[in-house]
């Protein structure tokens, strides 16, 4: 990451298939990765469903794009903050989410989890630190 990189946060608030926001939001993240900025993602409200494991869209004629989240680690997008309260309100826990990892090049390429569960105060602090917030 070059000096002067900006802090970008992509905030995902919607379920993955009812609208196109989640899919097109993910496209921004993948393209944005080429710009070498300090990037993170946040998942709140119904946005936590985007990371649910075992998604099956066969009978809905929608493209299942959840495997794409696995590629994020290779794009150096490895800070995925999931809001604890949003999970709890939906009867979910971290165990319901995709197991997403990245290789930490500053720690002998050890495989580490990309998903971090944060409460809403912690997420508010993180938002406060950002330069650019794009939310879908």
């Amino acid at each position: 990451m070059g000096n002067g990189a900006k802090k970008f946060m992509y905030v995902n608030r919607r379920a993955p298939y009812g609208t196109i926001y989640a899919l097109e939001g993910l496209e921004v993240v993948l393209i944005g990765a080429a710009f070498d900025q300090d990037v993170c993602m946040a998942f709140v409200d119904d946005g936590v469903f985007q990371l649910k494991k075992g998604q099956d869209t066969n009978e809905s004629n929608m493209k299942n794009f959840s495997p794409t989240y696995r590629a994020l680690g290779d794009y150096d997008v490895n800070k995925l903050y999931v809001e604890k309260e949003s999970l709890e309100q939906r009867g979910m826990s971290e165990d319901d989410l995709l197991e997403l990892t990245y290789e930490d090049e500053e720690d002998d390429y050890k495989e580490k989890p990309s998903i971090r569960i944060v409460n809403k105060e912690e997420l508010a602090d993180l938002m406060e630190q950002q330069d650019v917030i794009l939310n879908y």
Partner: peptide, 18 residues
């Protein structure tokens, strides 16, 4: 044009208004 223009806008602008 491409989505890169959105990211570049975020880099160049003091504020992004969505």
């Amino acid at each position: 044009s491409g989505l890169g223009q959105l990211i570049e806008m975020g880099i160049k602008a003091d504020r992004v208004m969505a």
